[in-house]
C-alpha cells in the first residue's frame, strides 16, 4: 500500500502540449508512472509522446479510464483546469502551476467540499511513491523506497531533506509536496492522516514554513490522533515580519502570527521531535528507525 499514487494510477496531463507539461510528462513516464493521456483544449486528436491528446478531461476519462490528473496549465487558466478535474470523477488532481489567483482558489476550495476528488497543490512539486510512480516535477533519481512518509510545503527543501535521508540510507514510503500558496487542497493534516493509516509508513516527517496556521492545526491533530513517531522542521526562523519570502504564503504578519517559533512550539508541545537543521531532521529520523 502507499499514499495517493501507485501502480494503479492512470494519469492524464492537463497542458501536455506546453513545454513544461510535455517535459514532465516524459519524466513521469520514464519514472514508471502510467500516463494514459494528455488534455489541451483545441488540440484534441493530436499525439504527444505517443499519448492521445483530448480537448476535455471527461473525454480522457471516458476513452482512457484516467483516474488522476496533473495540471501544468498557465496560471490564468489553471483554476478552471482544476475545476474541470474536480468535475470529472477523478480520485486525485495534482496542481503544479504557480501563481493561480487566490480568488480562483477560493472557488476551487468551495467546490472541493462537494466532490470526492483530492487536490494536491497548487504551486507544489507533486507526489511520489519511490520506485512506483510520481505525479509532478520531483527529480525521481534522488528518492529511495523506504518507510518514512514526508509532507512538505516546499520543493527544493524537500529534495534537500530527501538527500540528507539518502546519505543515511533512509528511504521514503511517499513524499507529498502540498505547496506554498495561501490556499491549497491537501493540508498537513490530510497528509499526516494518510501516513498514519499507511502500513508502509513507520515514521512521519512534517516540513513546514512561516505563514498561516496550518502547522499549528496539524500539531493539535497529531497530538490527538497519531500513534507513529513524527519529526518536524520549520523554515523561516530568521525571516523578518511583513516580508514575503518567495512563496505567496510565506509571510509573518505584522502582528506576529505565523512565526517559525509558534509553529515549532506547537509541534514540540504535541510530542513532535523538532530539529533545527535538515541534517538534524535526518538524524532524528535515522534514530527512530
Amino acid at each position: 500500500m502507499s499514499v495517493l499514487v501507485d501502480d494503479d494510477t492512470r494519469l492524464v496531463v492537463q497542458g501536455i502540449t506546453g513545454s513544461e507539461g510535455k517535459f514532465h510528462a516524459e519524466r513521469m513516464q520514464e519514472y514508471g508512472t502510467n500516463v494514459v493521456a494528455g488534455v489541451t483544449p483545441g488540440k484534441g486528436g493530436e499525439e504527444v509522446l505517443g499519448l492521445p491528446v483530448y480537448d476535455t478531461v471527461k473525454e480522457a476519462v471516458r476513452e482512457e479510464d484516467a483516474n488522476a490528473s496533473a495540471v501544468f496549465v498557465p496560471p490564468a487558466f489553471a483554476g478552471d483546469a482544476v475545476m474541470e478535474s474536480l468535475d470529472s470523477d477523478l480520485d486525485l488532481c495534482v496542481a503544479i502551476t504557480e501563481g493561480i489567483p487566490t480568488h480562483d482558489m477560493i472557488r476551487v476550495n468551495r467546490r472541493l467540499d462537494e466532490v470526492d476528488t483530492r487536490l494536491v497543490g497548487p504551486n507544489c512539486p507533486g507526489v511520489i511513491t519511490p520506485g512506483e510512480a510520481k505525479i509532478g516535477i520531483m527529480p525521481g533519481n534522488i528518492f529511495d523506497s523506504g518507510n518514512v512518509g514526508l509532507v512538505s510545503r516546499s520543493g527544493t527543501l524537500t529534495y534537500q531533506l530527501v538527500d540528507s535521508l539518502g546519505r543515511r540510507g533512509v528511504g521514503q514510503s511517499t513524499v507529498i509536496g502540498i505547496g506554498g500558496d495561501p490556499i491549497i487542497g491537501t493540508s498537513f493534516i490530510d497528509s499526516v492522516r494518510a501516513f498514519e493509516n499507511d502500513d508502509d509508513t513507520d515514521v512521519i516527517a512534517v516540513v513546514g514554513e512561516i505563514g498561516g496556521s496550518d502547522e499549528e492545526r496539524a500539531a493539535e491533530w497529531i497530538e490527538e490522533n497519531v500513534s507513529k513517531p513524527v519529526v518536524g522542521f520549520i523554515a523561516g526562523r530568521t525571516a523578518p515580519p511583513g516580508k514575503r519570502m518567495g512563496h505567496a504564503g510565506a509571510i509573518v504578519s505584522g502582528s506576529g502570527t505565523g512565526t517559525a517559533e509558534s509553529k515549532m512550539n506547537a509541534l514540540r508541545d504535541a510530542g513532535v521531535r523538532v530539529a533545527e537543521t535538515p541534517a538534524g531532521v535526518a538524524d532524528e529520523i535515522d534514530d527512530l528507525i
Partner: peptide
C-alpha cells in the same frame, strides 16, 4: 533556488 530551501 526555491523559497523553502533559501529560507532554510
Amino acid at each position: 533556488n526555491g523559497a523553502g530551501l533559501v529560507m532554510t
